[in-house]
Structures are given as structure tokens and as C-alpha cells.
């Protein structure tokens, strides 16, 4: 398996701010890789390091085996879809898409043909004569995608490309991006702060916080076995059980994570662990009820199927879960 992007102990410090701090990454060719984290966590700086807009202050970057430090963006075989799309307002859609070919000196006819093909690929055939200002947000996003893909990059970088779209459009684009990536076989590196987006689209996820990777793994691993309290919290609001609760349950760890959907509002069947508490709150989420149970002052969220009745607030309740769903964590 060829390595598309390699980060070896890469740091990018801005004065005293460690935007990226000793990050190690190994993205495989053809992989759909997501960098997930809150704003300011260093994920976008990592993307800019790959694109060449930033240079590392320490460490080593390779793109398909070639050293990337000191190589300007226009000599890298990567292309970027920008968060604000960055379409050229003075050019038509077709000229926007053909821009990369134009600066490389391709002939007029070749450019036009390639740009039209790219527009057809993102399902915008015949939109070539319009100006970016005449397109909707979703259409601009597709143009930005076509403009990057027409250059046949080895790695496509996407900086929160779906952030500005409404929910319906975002879900549709998620599917399209995924199938586009499969059919083209290009390595996609995707930056997002939306954990659902990362989980549903990526082959692997790197969770960033404060310039460092907290956890790197397949979506199921990151979701089910968060390594740190931050990951447990950020990727789908896991319950974090304190040292005291862990001891009571007989788990040898400082902290443990427990998914709300792994808990039942019922007495334990054989082998299951249980805790007693009182119902502290409840909200209806459609398919499930989110029930908050107070266990000696610790609040534990439970995702209970909507069909099941929820006891009234204040009434005592026993929650139960399988021992295998309780995941010990490294640190706070």
C-alpha cells in the first residue's frame, strides 16, 4: 500500500501558539481520511501544511514519497476545495474550472472539453457560461470541486466543504462525495468539525484537539472505544464514568466511557452491570428518548427507544449495561 501523505513529527508553531504539535500521520493512497476536531484544534493548519500554504516549523512531510517542505503550492500534485469555495468572481464557471489547465498552458479546445467533462461529473452540465455570483451555494460547491478535480490531483484536500450548506443538501453531497471518491480512486483528505459527517464518510478519522491527534482509527473504533475523555465527549457525547463509579463497578481504570445507546432502563439480566439512580430529565429526539439519570450526583445519559415508556422525573430507576460496552480510557 502506497503512502499518500506522511507527517513525521510535524509541528507548526505561530510564536507561542502550537497550532500543530508533533503530529504523526500516515494516509494511504485511495483513502478517504477525515480530520475531525473543534475550531482551533489544528486540523485546518494540517490541511494547509499539505497544500503548501504553511510550512512546518518542525518535522517532515512527504507527499507520495517526495519531500514537501519548501515546495510551493503550485508545484504540488494536490488540490484544495476551499471552505468559502474561493471561485474567481471575474471568470465564468467554465473558465473557473479550466483555470488550472490554462495556467499550465493547455490549448483552448482541450481546456473547454476537460472543464465541461468535469462540470458534468459534478452534475452541473451546461452551467459553464454563468458567473459564480449567479450560482447557489450548493452549485458553487460543485464548481469548486470540479475546478480541483479537473487537474487530476493525487490528493484532494477538502476544508469543511459542506459547512455552509443546509442539512438536506449536506446529506446529499456527503453521499455524492463518497461515491465520487470511490469511482475516481483519489485520496481525499477531509477537514470537518461535524462528527456525524466524519463517521459516515471517512475510512479513517484523526481526532484533533489543541494541535495534537487524540486518536486515529476507523470510525467504529473512534466511536466505540474512545481513547481519551476528549474523544469520548467530542465524538457523539459518550458518558464518562468517574474513578469512583469505575471502582464501584469493579473496572480498573481512572475513567471509562459508556455510550448512551448501550444502556437500558431496566434491571440487569445475567452478567450485566447495573447502577441505581433517579430520573433527572428527559427529551424526545424522534427515534429515541434521551433520558438523563442521576447516579450519586453523576449525570448519565441514556438513549432509550421511543417506544419504551419513561418513568416520571424523580422516580428511582436501575440502569444496566454489558461489561464489554464499558471502555477504559487512558487519561482525563
Amino acid at each position: 500500500m502506497t503512502t499518500a501523505v506522511l507527517f513525521d513529527n510535524v509541528s507548526r508553531h505561530f510564536g507561542v501558539v502550537r497550532a500543530v504539535d508533533r503530529v504523526n500521520l500516515d494516509i494511504a493512497e485511495g483513502e478517504f481520511f477525515a480530520m475531525l476536531g473543534p475550531s482551533g484544534s489544528g486540523k485546518t493548519t494540517c490541511l494547509r501544511l499539505m497544500a503548501g500554504f504553511e510550512q512546518p516549523t518542525g518535522g517532515h512531510i512527504e507527499i507520495f514519497g517526495e519531500t514537501a517542505e519548501g515546495v510551493p503550492p503550485y508545484r504540488r500534485s494536490v488540490n484544495t476545495v476551499f471552505q468559502d469555495y474561493a471561485l474567481f468572481p471575474h471568470l465564468s464557471t467554465l473558465d473557473n474550472v479550466a483555470y488550472g489547465l490554462m495556467v499550465k498552458g493547455a490549448g483552448r479546445e482541450e481546456r473547454r472539453k476537460a472543464a465541461e467533462d468535469a462540470l458534468a461529473m459534478v452534475k452541473l452540465p451546461g452551467y459553464g457560461t454563468r458567473r459564480p455570483g449567479q450560482l447557489s451555494g450548493g452549485q458553487r460547491q460543485r464548481v469548486a470541486l470540479a475546478r480541483a478535480l479537473v487537474n487530476k490531483p493525487k490528493v484532494l484536500l477538502l476544508d469543511e466543504p459542506l459547512g455552509a450548506l443546509d442539512l438536506k443538501l449536506r446529506e446529499q453531497m456527503q453521499e455524492e462525495l463518497k461515491s465520487l471518491q470511490k469511482s475516481l480512486g483519489i485520496t481525499f483528505v477531509f477537514v470537518t468539525h461535524d462528527q456525524g459527517e466524519a463517521l459516515s464518510m471517512a475510512d479513517r478519522i484523526a481526532v484533533f484537539n489543541e494541535g495534537r491527534i487524540q486518536q486515529l482509527g476507523r470510525p467504529e473504533e473512534v466511536y466505540n472505544q474512545p481513547k481519551t475523555r476528549f474523544v469520548a465527549d467530542f465524538v457523539g457525547s459518550s458518558n464518562v464514568l468517574s474513578t469512583k463509579l469505575c471502582q464501584r463497578l469493579g473496572v480498573k481504570a481512572a475513567f471509562a466511557s459508556l455510550r448512551p445507546e448501550a444502556i437500558a432502563l431496566a434491571a440487569p439480566s445475567n452478567g450485566a452491570l447495573s447502577l441505581a439512580g433517579t430520573i433527572a430529565g428527559q427529551s424526545f429526539l424522534g427515534a429515541t428518548n434521551r433520558v438523563v439519570v442521576d447516579v450519586d450526583g453523576a449525570r448519565i445519559a441514556v438513549a432509550s427507544p421511543a417506544a419504551h415508556a419513561v418513568p416520571a422525573i424523580g422516580s428511582p430507576v436501575t440502569i444496566s449495561f454489558a461489561a464489554r460496552d464499558l471502555h477504559p480510557m487512558e487519561d482525563a
Binding site: 497544500a51 503548501g52 500554504f53 510551493p72 503550492p73 503550485y74 494536490v78 488540490n79 484544495t80 476551499f82 474561493a86 471561485l87 474567481f88 483555470y99 488550472g100 495556467v103 499550465k104 475546478r147 480541483a148 487537474n151
Partner: peptide, 9 residues
Amino acid sequence: EASMDLGAD
């Protein structure tokens, strides 16, 4: 940045 990214010096 987009222009540089697309190969323009």
C-alpha cells in the same frame, strides 16, 4: 491561495 493551489505562480 486558490490560484496558487491550481498551479499558478
